[in-house]
Amino acid sequence: MAKFLQILVNGISLGSIYALTAIGYSLIYSILQLINMSNAAVFLTSAVIFYALYSSITAGQVALTFILTLLAAGALGYVIELVAIRPIREKGDSNTYALISSIGVKTILEQICQGTFGSEIKSFPTLLAGKYIDIMGARTSAIQIIIIVVTLSILFVMNWYTQHNRVGRGLRALSQNLNACHLMGMPVNTLIGVSFAVGSILAAVSGVAYCMYLSSISISVGAAIGNKAFAATVLGGIGVLKGAVVGGYILAVIESFVAGYWSMSAMNFVSFSVIIIVLIIKPTGIFGKKEQYKV
């Protein structure tokens, strides 16, 4: 029972990381039908920014470093949209070009991170190091609990934001009909920029939280999570925020149980098999809805 619970807790805390990152993919897809591959690099870049600030300018103040990192990530997301996505979008070119552009941004950011940060693993500051809670024999670290609580809080805030906040409602409107928003005189470009900023902030939260969980940071940290988060988005229904969350948790829990009861090498085999089966049964993902177009 203890083993079962331990693996479940591990899966849920990892699922929280997947979920946060997956929302970033889903949010942008819901508006532009674009898979923003640069999200994984923002995940890494934010963690690197946090590390750099923490070990120099902010000198050990976690809260201040965290806020500055989120601001930097938001600005980075806005700039990515402004420089790499908007020019292609405004020319009316296919999203395929924007996708390639986002892959380019991802590669550039990763190279910059490697060039400035180096390739060695480094210790990353964490919260409440060495504090554990025993839940029926399952040892849960304080940072795991913090990650789960923070994720659920962010999901709650995101839900409120898109339902009740003016900008959030604007984002929802964009996801329903971009052209109509244009015609209604809404600041579409700004709102799309904001969606990239929000997606990047979420990637930053998960990037920093994940490195705190690992107590370390290396340049390979973004790649694995980015792929998994994207898979989670597709599993849950791409473009549907709650789908990204559920997809993230399902994927991580499956992975944890396969690794814990069978083999870590079989983890990807099983989790991606599950995704394929789900997509065969329901091609739009768990919460995705079939779109109908008038001809």
Binding site: K3, I7, L14, V221, A223, I225, G260, Y261, S265, N268
Partner: peptide, 20 residues
């Protein structure tokens, strides 16, 4: 005897297994 793939970051599941 537990193996893991390149790029793996989260080892908690196999460590839980080994702990047993």
């Amino acid at each position: 005897s537990e193996k893991y793939d390149d790029g793996q970051q989260d080892f908690t599941s196999i460590l839980t297994k080994i702990k047993q």
